[in-house]
Amino acid sequence: MSDRDGAVPAADLDPAVVARIRELRTLYPLARSAVLPALWAVQDRIGYLPAWSEEVVGRELGLLPADVAAVASFYSMYFGRPVGRHVIQVCQNVSCALRGADDLLDHLRGWLGVDGEGESPDGAFSLEGTVECLGACGGGPMMQVDRYSYESLTPERAEAILTEIRETNPEGPVGG
């Protein structure tokens, strides 16, 4: 088994996650359709997709690990390595850019201590580099932190929001 990141072996995977993948498999006319939700089940539990997750998902759904890897690598929201406890996405598409998204992003990079993209030194946040329209154009500029959108931001308001998130949700994503 490949173990590119020295992560926990599959045997230690939370049995609830395996049970969830088996449940997902029965929802669809073809088991293969459960690949994306199964990968989500792993990532929601562990925070990213270790190399062994391809074997686990493949085994449960009757696919080769390489098949699962080919799917996982296509989608930008699956992480192949550990990330910060909260993922920040600052929309940079036109509607937000027209209302100051570039300044907001530059400011947050400096405040977080992140060069371009990646984790903040304290590990609390991961700032995504390339972020496309997040469907909140009515509230630009905006950022999404974990599953929540924060709209009509100024750099100061964004800082205050992130400070509160870091303090009130030290363990992981806001809202579970």
Partner: peptide, 11 residues
């Protein structure tokens, strides 16, 4: 899968 830049009605 609403993703068109500028579009947020389905949301």
């Amino acid at each position: 899968d609403e993703s068109e830049p500028g579009c947020f009605k389905d949301r």
